[in-house]
């Protein structure tokens, strides 16, 4: 499962110049570490290479890494042509989590972005649908508690 971290897998060739590192997540998902500002560029490059029907945006996972003071955002993209999952991984600071929205390029990112905003407070700039108290009870939302943060105490 483990691979040479220097070797760039085939599937990531279109975004070679943006990569800050490559790892592998079990089972066999290629993880591309990116700067927060490069995620949209990377997605556009992948889409240009594999075509509109050659890949789809699958899942957005935001994780609170409290000890490191960061929030990690993973974009899971299924590249149908290569039959492989690509993970675009980036870190944003925990006290001011902001990242450009992927909504224009991938409408499929909508539920994931709204959820990450409501549960972890990650602001996706350019997404007009973000709103607090989607599901958290209003009194929790008013206190600015993000339930999936580790110190939320929910």
């Amino acid at each position: 499962m483990s691979s040479d971290p220097l070797e760039i897998p085939d599937v990531l060739k279109p975004i070679e110049n943006l990569l800050k590192g490559v790892t592998v997540m079990k089972p066999g998902r290629v993880v591309a570490l990116l700067e927060p500002g490069d995620v949209v560029k990377a997605y556009v490059a992948l889409k240009a290479r594999y075509g509109e029907t050659g890949l789809y945006f699958s899942t957005l996972v935001a994780t609170d890494l409290k000890d490191e003071g960061k929030i990690r955002i993973d974009y899971y993209i299924n590249v149908l042509e290569k039959n492989q999952y690509v993970v675009l991984r980036t870190y944003v600071p925990r006290d001011d989590p902001r990242i450009e929205s992927l909504l224009k390029e991938a409408p499929a990112a909508l539920p994931g972005e709204c959820e990450a905003y409501d549960l972890l407070g990650v602001v996706f700039e350019g997404n007009p649908h973000l709103r607090r108290a989607f599901f958290v009870p209003e009194e929790v939302a008013e206190k600015d508690i993000f339930p999936l943060r580790k110190d939320a105490g929910v």
Binding site: S58, L80, A108
Partner: peptide
């Protein structure tokens, strides 16, 4: 259309009925 399916991340029988052959049984 297939383009709508992939851009909006639709899955399963909905995607397959539009000609997009996504199936995790095969992918994974």
């Amino acid at each position: 259309t297939p383009a709508q399916v992939t851009s909006h991340g639709l899955l399963g029988p909905v995607a397959r009925a539009s000609g997009v052959a996504t199936d995790s049984r095969y992918h994974d």
